[in-house]
């Protein structure tokens, strides 16, 4: 599970630089939440592209997370990247005044998609490619809003577990204030990832690492000392979120179909 931090830093800065240049972008843009993942991504982008080519959008819902907003602002000043605050409460409130709900997951998803919509708009305005910040733990568990925080142009952090990002963040010198923050998707006040998933990241990542990277069987993982219910819960989260990691299925009828046998690389002529 332990990573070689300088090597990973080198890979990810090279990746950001190379992908942007392939698609003729000079600038990268990302949502800054004041949390760990977006901080690490912004740091790597600033290093890869120069700080003046990185735009951090801070996209709060009203005053709900004013401390995180402050942390994100301070961090973007530290990195010397451009930043901008856009409050999404007018758009979100307007929608929910027409279609009210008390379901906080619905509200949280709407906010995540509102942020996505602003990021894509600014991506076009600023000619900046969107850098995703979904880590491997979230991608595997499906802990993210489809077409919300999971939407991006490239995702530099997608092959690092949360605990590996913590390790990288310490090496990169991300301020302790951000590193020690309790991980939260920021969907509502008091929400924490670990509270919602019901397990601490350390334990989740150890199990995911065995299941995914080491291809260990469920039986052997349980035998090595993890609780049966925990392992089964993680497997079921992975299974039920496969739709978030794929393009939607298309019924194949013709002799050559998108998603089936019309097969071209993402980096076509790049």
């Amino acid at each position: 599970m332990k990573i070689n931090e300088p090597f990973v830093e080198k890979i990810l800065t090279a990746f950001i630089r190379e992908e942007l240049s392939k698609f003729n972008y000079k600038k990268g843009i990302l949502g800054l939440s004041g949390g760990l993942d977006s901080a690490v991504c912004a740091f790597l982008a600033a290093k890869a592209l120069k700080p003046s080519n990185v735009i951090g959008l801070i996209i709060p819902y009203g005053e709900t997370f004013s401390k995180d907003v402050k942390d994100a602002q301070e961090f973007s000043r530290l990195l010397k990247i451009k930043s901008r605050i856009i409050n999404i409460s007018p758009m979100v409130d307007s929608y929910f005044s027409s279609y009210p709900t008390e379901n906080r997951i619905l509200k949280g998803n709407k906010m995540a998609r509102e942020r996505m919509s602003i990021l894509y708009d600014f991506s076009a305005r600023e000619k900046a490619l969107i850098l995703g910040t979904s880590n491997k733990t979230e991608l595997l568990l499906g802990y993210g809003t489809i077409h919300g925080d999971m939407a991006c142009g490239i995702n530099p952090l997608g092959d690092l577990y949360k605990t590996q990002i913590r390790q990288l963040a310490e090496y990169l010198g991300i301020p302790e204030k951000i590193r020690k923050k309790i991980p939260s998707a920021g969907l509502w006040i008091g929400q924490t990832d670990e509270g919602e998933i019901g397990l601490p990241y350390d334990e989740i990542d150890k199990i995911l690492y065995q299941l995914v990277d080491k291809r260990t069987s469920k039986k052997d993982i349980i035998a090595s000392g993890f609780k049966k219910e925990t392992v089964e819960k993680i497997i079921s989260l992975i299974k039920n979120s496969e739709f978030k990691r794929k393009l939607p299925p298309i019924p194949k009828m013709s002799s050559r179909s998108v998603g089936h046998d019309f097969l071209f690389p993402f980096d076509w002529d790049k």
Binding site: I11, A14, F15, E18, E19, P265, F266, D267
Partner: peptide
């Protein structure tokens, strides 16, 4: 060297 579709 280089990346193709994320492969490094």
């Amino acid at each position: 060297v280089g990346f193709e579709d994320g492969k490094h």
